[in-house]
Design a protein around this nucleic acid. Structure first.
Length: 809
RNA sequence: GCCGGUGUGGUGGAAUGGUAGACACAGGGGACUUAAAAUCCCCCGGCAGCAAUGCUGUACCGGUUCGAGUCCGGUCACCGGCACCA
C-alpha cells in the first residue's frame, strides 16, 4: 500500500477537529500543567510563509511530547491583527480593515490546520475582537489611574511615509522599521507609558528567568543601566546646572560644559546672551535634523558658545565656558554634561575643533593625540588635587564621597530606556479610551462603557497634519465629559500594535471571560507561561513591553507572578536558497502550501525541523525536502517487513533504547535536527536487521510529535490503536532502559601518540589489559608498535586507548 | 566604536577535551525494469596509490594537554544588536 499523505492528513485532521484531543483543561489537578507559547502571527494578506512553521512546529513537537508525558498542556493560537499593512490594504482596495482581517484570519486558520498543529482551537484570540480589546483598553485605564500613562508634548519620531509617530524601538538606523522611510523629529502631544519606572525591575528580574543568554544581554543593553553621579555646576548668573557623569574622577579635567540645544536653561538665558540670535539659529537647525542626519554628522562636532554666561568648575574653582551642541542628548541624563576632553573622545573632538584646553588628569596615554579613556588599575590620577596617585577605580567613589560631603553632587543611576510613546495617528488600532474635557482635563471613559468601539469611517487615510483618520468623525469625537457632563472631545489616536500583544498570553488562559481580562482561578492555574519561543527581533519590543505590562498587572493583583514567561528561546530565520533573505522582489519566497501539496504536511514539519540548528538562520532548499519525504516513505514501508514478534527485539534493543534517550533529551533542548537524525539512523538499522512489532511501536511513538498524521494512520493499520484503545498521541511517551542502551561489544579506537592507528572490537567494559591485548593483535597497531615500548597508556572506557611509546632501548 | 554570535566536505549540517564529517541533499556505481521513475545495496574531504595503506585536513598564528573542531592568547572574515547614552 502506498503512503497516500493527502488522504491520511485529511482524515486525521477531520478526526481531531471532531474529538478535540488538544483541548486544555483549566483546573486539572491530577496532572502537571504545561503552557507552551509561540508568538501569534500577524494575519497578513500573503498568508503563511515558511518562517512561521519553524517555531510553530517546534513548539507543537514539544507540547505533543509533554502531553504524552502526562502533562495537561495549553498550546494556544491567536492573531495579532491590528496594524498598518491591513489598513494600507483597506485604503487601497476600499474595503473595511475588519473585513480584510476576517478574511486573512480564515486563510491563516486553514493553513495552520493544514499543517496539523495541536492548537486548542476553542481558545483562539484575535486582538481586533471588541471582546478582547475591551480588556486592552481596560488595562490602559488602569495604567492611567496608576500614573503610568500620561500625555506629554515632546519631540517624537515621525515617519514621513506612514504619517505616524513611532516608538524609539521602532526606529532602526534613523528610518522607520516598517517602511524604511526617513524618520524626523516632530513636536507632538502623545500618550506615553512610564516603562522607565520599571527599568530597574525589568533588569533585575532577568536574573530569575530562564531566557537564552543573548536575549538577556540584548534586554540589558537596551535598558542600559549606568552608575555615576549628578553634580551641580554653578553658573556665573547664579543658576545651578546639573550634569550627569560616570567619570566623577575626571572632574579636575572638566574645561567646559555642554548643554543640549533643547535644554531649558538655554531658553531662560536667551535674553542675557550676547549671541542669542546665533544660539536660536543653532537650536532651530538641530530640531530640523532627522535622526539619520544626527548620526550621520556624528564625526563632525558642531555647537555654539553661550556668550554671557559661564560656569564654575566646583573642584578647581575655575571659570569655564558653556556651549550648546547636539552631541549632547536632551533625553539622557540631565541633558547637560561637564566636558573632559582629555578623557572622553567626543569631548576631545569638540575641544580640538573649538580650540579648548585639554588637561590630562589620568596618566597613561597621550591626550594631545587622543582622549585617554582607560579605567583599569594602571590608570592613575594626576593634576587632580586630593585624587592624585589613586587609580580610577579608587578615585570615582572618593570623588562622589567628596561631592556628597560638600553638598554639590550625589551618586546616581541612569537608564537608556525611555518611556514608551503609546499613541498612533492611524485607524486600525484600539481606540484610547480617554476624553478631553475643557474643564476637567483628561477623563477616563467609564469602565462599564468598554469596549470603546472603533467608529466606522469613510476613509482610513492618515491626514497630512498628523491627525488620526478618526478625528474627522465628528459624531464620534464630540461627546460629553463622563465627569461633569459638559461637551468634550474623545482622544482620536489609537494604540500601537504592541498593545494587544502585551497580554494576549493571559487571555488564552480564559478566553471567553466577560468580567475580567482573565479569571484569578485560570491565571493561577496556567501562569506563568512555561516556555515561550519567538523571534529575536521582538527582544526589545514585544518581549520588553509585555514584561512591563505583566509587572504592572502583578502590582495591581491581576496576575500572581512577577514575570510572564519562565523560559524564552528563539529561532533563527529561514532564508531563501543561496542564503538570501526571502522577499517578493527576489522571487524566492517559499509558500508552505506548495510544499504540503507536493509532499504533505508531515514532510513539511519534519523537514523544517531537520534543516539545521534551530537557533541559527538556515537557507531553504526545495531539493533537500525530498530527503525528508523519502524518510517518511521508508517508515511507511516498514509495515511490509515487520515480524510478528511483540516487544522490542533483542537485535534492535540497544538502538531503540538509545534512540529513545536521544530523542527525549533532544526535544527538550530544541535539537530537533539531531533527534530526527537519530530516528533516521534507527530506521536504517531496521532496514539492515529487520524489526519487530514492538520496534515499530517505539518508532511510531517517537515520531508522532514530528509526523502526527502518518504515525496515527500506521498505528491504526498495525492494530495498535485497537490494542491500546487509543491514538498513538494518547499513549505514554516511551521510556528507555539505560542498561539496555549498551551493546555487548564496543568498537574502540586505538591511538599511538594520540594518532589513530586502528579500531578493535572488544566486550563492553573491558579492562586495560584486555584492551591492550586486543590492540596488539590489530595488524596496523602491531606494525606501528614494532621496535617500540609502551611507556604509558590512557584508557577511556569503551571509547579509546592511547598508547604512549618510545623506541625500545 | 561597544556588546553578542559564527567560521567544519560540492551543499545543509553532526561531534559531554577522546575514532572529525553522524544524518541528509547533490554526485558516482550496481541490482530490479523492455525502459524510465520509484525502490533497494555500495562509494563519496584532499593528495599519493591498483589496493592494503600512508600523509594531510575543522578561517589563520601560537599555547595548554597523552589527546584540541572543542580550552587559553592573538589575528582575519562574515552575521546580528546597539550606537554622540557622558
Amino acid at each position: 500500500m502506498k503512503y497516500d499523505f493527502a488522504a491520511i492528513e485529511k482524515k486525521w485532521q477531520a478526526r481531531w477537529a471532531e474529538t478535540k484531543p488538544y483541548a486544555a483543561v483549566t483546573g486539572e489537578r491530577d496532572k502537571p500543567k504545561f503552557y507552551g507559547l509561540i508568538e501569534f502571527p500577524y494575519p497578513s494578506g500573503q498568508g503563511l510563509h515558511v518562517g512561521h512553521p519553524r517555531p510553530f512546529t517546534a513548539m507543537d513537537i514539544i507540547t505533543r511530547k509533554k502531553r504524552m508525558q502526562g502533562y495537561n498542556v495549553l498550546f494556544p493560537i491567536g492573531f495579532d491583527a491590528f496594524g498598518l499593512p491591513t489598513e494600507n490594504y483597506a485604503i487601497k482596495n476600499h474595503v473595511h480593515p475588519a473585513a480584510v482581517t476576517k478574511h486573512n484570519i480564515e486563510n491563516f486558520t486553514s493553513q495552520l490546520k493544514m499543517l496539523g498543529y495541536g492548537f486548542d482551537w476553542d481558545r483562539v484570540t484575535d486582538t481586533t475582537d471588541p471582546s478582547y480589546y475591551k480588556w486592552t483598553q481596560w488595562i490602559f485605564l488602569q495604567l492611567y489611574k496608576h500614573g503610568l500613562a500620561y500625555k506629554a508634548t515632546m519631540p517624537v519620531n515621525w515617519c514621513t511615509s506612514c504619517k505616524c509617530v513611532l516608538a524609539n524601538e521602532e526606529v532602526v538606523e534613523g528610518v522607520c522599521e516598517r517602511c524604511g522611510s526617513p524618520v524626523i523629529r516632530k513636536e507632538k502631544s502623545q500618550w506615553m507609558l512610564a516603562i522607565t519606572k520599571y527599568a530597574e525591575r525589568l533588569l533585575d528580574d532577568l536574573e530569575d528567568v530562564d531566557y537564552i543568554e543573548r536575549v538577556k544581554i540584548q534586554q540589558r543593553n537596551w535598558i542600559g543601566r549606568s552608575t555615576g553621579a549628578e553634580v551641580t555646576f554653578r553658573a556665573t548668573n547664579g543658576d545651578g546646572i546639573v550634569i550627569y557623569t560616570t567619570r566623577a574622577d575626571t572632574m579636575f579635567g572638566a574645561t567646559y560644559m555642554v548643554l543640549s540645544p533643547e535644554h531649558e536653561l538655554v531658553k531662560k538665558w536667551l535674553p542675557e546672551l550676547a549671541n542669542a540670535e546665533e544660539v536660536e539659529a543653532y537650536q532651530r537647525a538641530a530640531a530640523a535634523k532627522s535622526d539619520l542626519e544626527r548620526t550621520d554628522l556624528a564625526k563632525d562636532k558642531t555647537g555654539v558658545r553661550l556668550d554671557g554666561v559661564r560656569a564654575v568648575n566646583p573642584v578647581t574653582g575655575k571659570e569655564i565656558p558653556i556651549f550648546i551642541s547636539d552631541y549632547v542628548l536632551s533625553t539622557y541624563g540631565t541633558g547637560a554634561i561637564m566636558a573632559v576632553p582629555g578623557h572622553d573622545q567626543r569631548d576631545w573632538d569638540f575641544a580640538k575643533k573649538f580650540g579648548l584646553p585639554i588637561i590630562e588628569v589620568v596618566s597613561g596615554g597621550d591626550v594631545e593625540k587622543e582622549a585617554f579613556v582607560a579605567k583599569d588599575d594602571t590608570a592613575i590620577m594626576t593634576n587632580s588635587g586630593f585624587l592624585n596617585g589613586k587609580s580610577v577605580k579608587e578615585a570615582i567613589p572618593a570623588m562622589i564621597e567628596y561631592l556628597e560631603k560638600e553638598g554639590i553632587g550625589s551618586a546616581k543611576v541612569n537608564y537608556k530606556l525611555r518611556d514608551w510613546v503609546f499613541s498612533r495617528q492611524r485607524y486600525w488600532g484600539e481606540p484610547i479610551p480617554m476624553v478631553l474635557c475643557p474643564d476637567c482635563g483628561w477623563v477616563c471613559v467609564p469602565e462599564e462603557q468598554l469596549p470603546l468601539l472603533l467608529p466606522m469611517v469613510e476613509s482610513y487615510e492618515p491626514t497630512d497634519d498628523g491627525e488620526s483618520p478618526i478625528s474627522k468623525m465628528t459624531d464620534w469625537v464630540n461627546t460629553t465629559c463622563p465627569k461633569c457632563g459638559k461637551s468634550a472631545k474623545r482622544e482620536t489616536d489609537t494604540m500601537p500594535q504592541w498593545a494587544g500583544s502585551s497580554w494576549y498570553f493571559l487571555r488564552y488562559m480564559d478566553p471567553h471571560n466577560d468580567a475580567a481580562p482573565v479569571s484569578k482561578e485560570a491565571e493561577e492555574y496556567w501562569g506563568p507561561v512555561d516556555w515561550y519561543n519567538g523571534g529575536m527581533e521582538h527582544t526589545t519590543l514585544h518581549l520588553l513591553y509585555s514584561r512591563f505590562w505583566h509587572k504592572f498587572l502583578y502590582d495591581i493583583g491581576v496576575v500572581h507572578t512577577k514575570e510572564p514567561y519562565a523560559k524564552r528561546t528563539s529561532h533563527g530565520m529561514i532564508l531563501g536558497e543561496g542564503g538570501e533573505k526571502m522577499s517578493k522582489s527576489r522571487g524566492n519566497v517559499v509558500n508552505p502550501n506548495d510544499i504540503v501539496e507536493q509532499y504533505g504536511a508531515d514532510t513539511m514539519r519534519l523537514h523544517i525541523m531537520f534543516i539545521g540548528d534551530f537557533e541559527k538562520a538556515v537557507s531553504w532548499s526545495n531539493e533537500a525536502v525530498k530527503g525528508s519525504k523519502r524518510f517518511l516513505d521508508r517508515c511507511w514501508n516498514l509495515m511490509d517487513m515487520v515480524s510478528d514478534e511483540e516487544g522490542i527485539s533483542e537485535k534492535n534493543a540497544a538502538t531503540v533504547h538509545r534512540t529513545i534517550r536521544k530523542v527525549t533529551s533532544d526535544i527538550d533542548e530544541l535539537k530537533m535536527n539531531t533527534a530526527i537524525a537519530a530516528l533516521m539512523t534507527m530506521v536504517n538499522e531496521f532496514y539492515a536487521n529487520g524489526l519487530s512489532r514492538g520496534d515499530l511501536k517505539a518508532l511510531l511513538l517517537l515520531l508522532s510529535p514530528f509526523a502526527p498524521h502518518m504515525t496515527e494512520e500506521m498505528w491504526e493499520l498495525m492494530g495498535f490503536a485497537k490494542e491500546t484503545g487509543k491514538m498513538a498521541m494518547q499513549n505514554p511517551w516511551p521510556e528507555f532502559d539505560e542498561s539496555k542502551t549498551v551493546a555487548s561489544t564496543v568498537e574502540m579506537a586505538v591511538q599511538i601518540q594520540g594518532k589513530l592507528r586502528g579500531t578493535i572490537n572488544v566486550p563492553t567494559d573491558s579492562d586495560e589489559s584486555a584492551v591492550i591485548a586486543a590492540a596488539k593483535e590489530n595488524e596496523r597497531v602491531a606494525k606501528a608498535l614494532e621496535g617500540m615500548q609502551i611507556v604509558k597508556t590512557i584508557l577511556v572506557k569503551n571509547k579509546l586507548v592511547n598508547l604512549i611509546v618510545k623506541p625500545a632501548s
